[in-house]
């Protein structure tokens, strides 16, 4: 019954921003702006991923690739299947069909905790801070490969105290960086919505992920904090990590993303640089819900509505599950 099997990942290789990783980032400028396009250096490759909620396809992605070392935004109208795709990629939900890989290793039927250990860590749309733990305890939890988390070693502090000390130092650095150091000893439940988002992001960084997936990092954050949050996300890329985020806030998408993927009705309908996507008529149609003859299949408004409901339903379900 060993909870922490040896860390099989090489999460450490992503490191904290080695210049070489920075330089190695291939340019995306030559990549054509079309759905499902291949990237020069993809960290995630997915094929024919589908997930249904009661007869409606919430996600139906033929091909998706996420470029390493850049910030990719995943946008789309409500109910487009973005969060569901997130859940599928990270193992929190199981697709009906599909295959996808991270750094070349297949992730189909891999448990969420293993996905995280591989170096692919996510945050949640409804922030999941551990309300009754202090901020610093939240942070310490994030560290991987802790000896003290093994049952047989836990009762002997001398075996893990040194490591705990190092983790705490790292956590304190991150808290300072995210300007949460003053809240160090507060219960996480007492933080504001924006501070919770920051804490969740900082905690995810404790895992030292190669790819960090942020689900609506701006939702519920007050405008004063938004600017600093944007800066934090950019700094993640600048230290060599890959960022994939879901967002509704178009300013944020325009400001910081290097590449944008647009979903509607569970499908990827457009891809490209922010500029290219913003002017793409398919995207405008997807947001306005208008019919378009070429790129989009016939959109039945009722269907979209029902699909949106299905997604809300699934969120409520998982939400209720958390309350039980």
């Amino acid at each position: 019954m060993d909870a922490e099997r040896e860390d099989t990942t090489t999460a450490g290789t992503a490191g904290t921003g080695t210049p070489s990783a920075f330089a190695a980032r291939p340019d995306l400028s030559g990549v054509p702006a079309e759905p499902g396009v291949a990237k020069p250096d993809a960290i995630i490759v997915g094929d024919s991923i589908t997930r249904q909620f009661g007869g409606l396809k919430a996600v139906d992605v033929d091909h998706i690739e996420i470029q390493r070392g850049v910030i990719t935004a995943l946008i789309g109208p409500n109910g487009a299947g973005k969060t569901t795709l997130f859940n599928l990629l990270t193992g929190f939900d199981v697709p009906a069909t599909g295959a996808w890989s991270f750094n070349g290793s297949s992730l189909a039927r891999v448990a969420p905790y293993k996905v995280a250990r591989l170096g692919m860590v996510r945050t949640f749309q409804l922030t999941k801070v551990l309300a009754k733990l202090t901020v610093i305890e939240n942070m310490r939890l994030g560290a991987t490969g802790q000896r003290g988390e093994k049952f047989w070693l836990a009762a002997f502090p001398f075996l893990w105290r040194q490591q705990e000390h190092e983790n705490t130092e790292r956590a304190d650095d991150l808290l300072t960086r995210f300007k949460l150091d003053e809240k160090r000893e507060d219960f996480a439940g007492s933080l504001s919505g924006g501070q919770r988002k920051l804490l969740e992001m900082a905690r995810a960084l404790m895992v030292d992920p190669e790819l960090i997936m942020l689900d609506e990092p701006m939702a519920g954050v007050n405008p004063a904090l938004k600017q600093s949050l944007l800066g934090h996300v950019k700094s993640l890329r600048d230290e060599g990590r890959t960022v994939l985020f879901v967002e509704h806030d178009m300013d944020m998408v325009r400001d910081i993303s290097d590449w944008v993927i647009v979903m509607a009705q569970g499908k990827i309908v457009a891809e490209g640089t922010p500029e290219a996507v913003m002017t793409n008529p398919a995207v405008i149609d997807a947001y306005l819900g208008a019919h378009h003859d070429t790129d989009l299949t016939e959109i039945d408004e009722k269907e979209i509505e029902a699909e949106a409901m299905a997604e809300i339903q699934s969120e409520i379900e998982s939400d209720q599950k958390d309350h039980r």
Partner: peptide, 16 residues
């Protein structure tokens, strides 16, 4: 204690 609070969050941090 974290599992008691929110097991999904714990899972997302790589704990079994």
């Amino acid at each position: 204690r974290s599992i008691r609070e929110d097991e999904e969050a714990v899972r997302s941090l790589g704990k079994n």
